[in-house]
Each structure stands twice: as structure tokens, then as C-alpha cells.
Design a protein around this nucleic acid. Structure first.
Length: 270
DNA sequence: GCGAACGTACCG
DNA sequence: CGGTACGTTCGC
């Protein structure tokens, strides 16, 4: 019921007429960077998303192939790779993440013994991945360990995160508020996510001046409760991230839906 | 589990 | 350098 109304919350006097001001553009220019083809509200308003997304993901072999990154073309995805999406437990992706962690942590030093491959095989060379990893990893993780942070692996603060979304993980993370600069992570510590800029709270233009955050701004250091980004309300390790690592269960993660849809869109375009 | 307070990343 | 606001900690 009245979802937008709830989110809008009490309006400050200047917005009493128009309930909550929800501009089409994000409040700040820096928030415009998100390049989602659809706004979050689009995903929210999409009925029975789980079914739709799944059908999108499993759309067609051609589309799936088209969605593969160019540089991964020489690494065929396992013929059964759609199974990874279908795995009820999602252990394929979780296992892949774990293997990658090991490969990245343990394999780097061992690259000497591998004897290296051709000069154009520097990915395997630097990863030190055993050949058994390559068909699998190539499709999903065409990165060297040095790029793990860019690819969505992030050691920082008290937890590590993994998006395990393959070559498009970067975009996914950016979409989730992880700017490329943040992901490149200079300080190696905790990174701040950014507001998505597209959800209803983000589009709200004014503070309510009534909530605890507004009233307690000086000490609270918090944005108005009614402007708090929906994505930031979720834990970084929450449904959005987790589902892509350990299950891809689509428990209503708007951004997961968005990513899947985005992937599908690109596949269709390409 | 929730909210307040604080540290500090990020940006202009 | 100051303001804003995200992430974490702590008290309840």
C-alpha cells in the first residue's frame, strides 16, 4: 500500500503542497553517474521480478554468448554454465569465489613453477590458476589477482566482499555505489558507498527537518531519514552482494534485478 | 534490533 | 579546509 507515501515521510513546510518533491534528477551532480537504463523505481514496479529475471538470465544461448566480455571470447564458458544460475544452492558461484580466493592468495607465488604460458596468456600466468580453473574462471573471472579488487573482491575493514558477477562486476559495483576510484581503493580500508541517486529517497530534494537525523545533524552526521538511499540501507554484504555470491537467490534485490536486466539489455543490443 | 554518537571518507 | 554523510561502535 502507498509505498511512495511512506517513503516520502513528513514533508517540510515548503514541500507540503507537492507531498515529497521527487525531481527527475538526482539532487547532486555526482549522483548522476549511475548509468542504469532504468531507475530503481522501474525495478520496484516490475511485477514478479524473480520470474522475469530468471527468464532474462536464461534467455537464449546467443544472448548469453553476446553478453560475454570480448576478452573472454577465447575462454569458452563451460557448456553447462547456465547451470550455475540454476543451482538451487548457488554453490557454484560461491565455490568459484572461494577457488578464486585461494588462487589469488596461494597461486601468485607459484607462478614460477607453472612455467608460464604464451605471452598472450598472461592472465593464467599471473593468476597461477591451474588449468582446471581456466575454463570455469575464464568465463566469469577474466582477471588477474591484482584486479580482484576491481572485479569485486574487496578486502577491507572487517569483512571481504565479493560480487562474483564476472566481467561486469565492476559496473555492478559502480551501480551499487562503489565508484571505480573507491574500488581501486587507495587506503585499503573501508570504502564508502554512494547513494544510488535514483531511488525515491535519493530523489527527495529537501530534508524533512523533523526526523532524528535532521534534528540531530550536528552530532548524528546522518542524512535525513527520508532521504536515506534505499540501497545504502541494505548491508553491503546483504541480499545484493550475497545473492550473487552464494545463491543468486533473487530475494527482491532491486539492484540484482537491475544488473540482470542490464546484462540482458546489453545482450540484446549487442 | 534500534538509534545515537562518533570516526572519517569523500567532495566542492 | 569545511561540510556532508556512510560505516562502525556502543548503549539501551
Amino acid at each position: 500500500m502507498s509505498t511512495a507515501v511512506d517513503i516520502a515521510g513528513p514533508s517540510s513546510p515548503d514541500q507540503a503542497h507537492s507531498s515529497a518533491k521527487i525531481p527527475n534528477e538526482p539532487l547532486r551532480p555526482s549522483l548522476k553517474r549511475s548509468n542504469h537504463p532504468y531507475s530503481l523505481s522501474h525495478y520496484i514496479s516490475t511485477p514478479s521480478p524473480a520470474v522475469d529475471v530468471k527468464s532474462l538470465i536464461e534467455s537464449s544461448p546467443d544472448q548469453q554468448r553476446a553478453a560475454q566480455p570480448v576478452h573472454a571470447k577465447s575462454r569458452r564458458a563451460p557448456s553447462s554454465w547456465p547451470d550455475m544460475w540454476e543451482s538451487p544452492s548457488g554453490l557454484h558461484l560461491a565455490h568459484a569465489a572461494e577457488l578464486l580466493m585461494r588462487a589469488g592468495l596461494l597461486g601468485v607465488k607459484g607462478e614460477g613453477e607453472g612455467g608460464g604460458s604464451g605471452p598472450d596468456e598472461e592472465e593464467e600466468d599471473s593468476t597461477g590458476c591451474g588449468p582446471e580453473f581456466q575454463p570455469f574462471l575464464g568465463a566469469w573471472f577474466p582477471f588477474s589477482p591484482a584486479l580482484f579488487p576491481l572485479a569485486g573482491f574487496q578486502m577491507g575493514g572487517s569483512h571481504w566482499r565479493s560480487s562474483a558477477v564476472g566481467a561486469e562486476g565492476m559496473e555492478g559495483l559502480v551501480a551499487e555505489g562503489y565508484s571505480p576510484g573507491s574500488l581501486a581503493g587507495g587506503s585499503g580500508g573501508r570504502r564508502k558507498r554512494k547513494r544510488c541517486g535514483e531511488c525515491v529517497p535519493c530523489r527527495r530534494q529537501t530534508n524533512c527537518e523533523q526526523c532524528s537525523s535532521c534534528r540531530n545533524r550536528k552530532r548524528g552526521h546522518q542524512i535525513c531519514k527520508y532521504r536515506k538511499c534505499e540501497e545504502l540501507k541494505r548491508k553491503p554484504g546483504g541480499a545484493g552482494f550475497e545473492s550473487r555470491v552464494s545463491g543468486f537467490d533473487l530475494r527482491g534485490s532491486d539492484f540484482t534485478l537491475g544488473l540482470a536486466q542490464e546484462r540482458s539489455n546489453r545482450a540484446l543490443e549487442g
